[in-house]
Design a protein around this nucleic acid. Sequence first.
DNA 1: TACAACAGTATTGTTGACAATATGAGTGCG
DNA 2: CGCACTCATATTGTCAACAATACTGTTGTA
Lengths: 224, 224
Amino acid sequence: MDVETPAKAATLSDSVFAQLRTAIVKGELAPGSKVNEPQLSKQYGISRGPLREAIRRLEGCKLVEIKPNSGAKVISLNKVQAIEIYEIRESLEGLACRLAASKASAEDCARLRQLLANHEAQIQSENGRLYYQKEGDLDFHYLIVSLSGNDRLFKLLCDELYHLLRLYRVQTSSGPSRPEQAFKEHHQIVDALENNDCELAELLMKRHISGARKTLMSQLEQID
Amino acid sequence: MDVETPAKAATLSDSVFAQLRTAIVKGELAPGSKVNEPQLSKQYGISRGPLREAIRRLEGCKLVEIKPNSGAKVISLNKVQAIEIYEIRESLEGLACRLAASKASAEDCARLRQLLANHEAQIQSENGRLYYQKEGDLDFHYLIVSLSGNDRLFKLLCDELYHLLRLYRVQTSSGPSRPEQAFKEHHQIVDALENNDCELAELLMKRHISGARKTLMSQLEQID
DNA sequence: TACAACAGTATTGTTGACAATATGAGTGCG
DNA sequence: CGCACTCATATTGTCAACAATACTGTTGTA
């Protein structure tokens, strides 16, 4: 969402934090590469103070790892770590979906349908290849998580895990995966939400993410 | 674990971060109170540079909230937020327990039994009041989560959520709750682990935490 | 009395310089 | 040829001072 808007923030640290985060997530800062403070401070035209604070915030998002006296480097996710993240995501989004199902209003569901319709239009026009890459998929998940009403859960998923997943997709160039299948599952999930069927909603969401994970993993078998 | 050892770390920022974290979790820095940089820098004998980095790391742990141009203040959890955390914890520890059940060896289970035996001894000698307060309960959960083999899950639960829960207990002086009941449930969970019964293990853990949550919530009905 | 403008103070944000540590090239020795 | 050592360089860690913003209490006016 606000990933695309570096914009200027109230403080320099905020601004450069946002810029660095998008740079990392987009792969402009290569995974595993060192974060050079003098270079970046020159590049962004700020001193090292606020820059270091920004880096510490990136550490909080798990986008960089800091080793004392040696500096920070952009994280590089291997297959094991990706599986770990997907396990967590599956559990938490299942929770989010269950909560959303218990609270979703008719208007909420209408918005979800609207979202899916837009995605479908994109799929038609762009041959379906960009459904995942254009973050359309994440839009859907964003909205469901926000409907859960659990603000901490929203921050955990949308401010942390999703960024990591994005990074991983860039890192492995893992692109569009089974858009038509995902599309069908999304509609099933909204069905469950409309019926306020908490258990089913949770089950479907977990299965949905589990499927995506397995697809990703099989794609990765040969690589790393 | 290392919460009790402020010790000195490789860097001043690390050291003061650890000290501040224990201070917050123990309630020495009151929830909701402002984090005064000049005061703390004097108190810990360091300059504001590393102190500010430590504060940013506390923000990453969600132990403080930072408002631009206004500084940081220690978080104060209200009932709604506590429920949110418990919902997340229930989901994630359920996952951890399921994973642990699929991997736990006989020795692992023996260690868990040992742990429970120690706790039982403490209960006998101290009349059961301190089972929760002495972190004996968390020891058990720590071990299970580590047995899950999911390192990110471990960090998420043990480096973030547990600190928040500790803070909340201090904040509300919510002490020992149903130790004998918890004790029985712990043993049931180990039973499931020994049988590598993943589904049951997850179910029992979720129910265990859900029970703790409901107890806490009912205790809190009248307060906030 | 209530409220708005103001000034003074305290705190946060930022900077550049200095100290400590790690990195890497080059050299000498076995 | 390989390895350890040394020294130069670069980077990280830390500090104290300055700038900008927020806060507080006062004064003055309606």
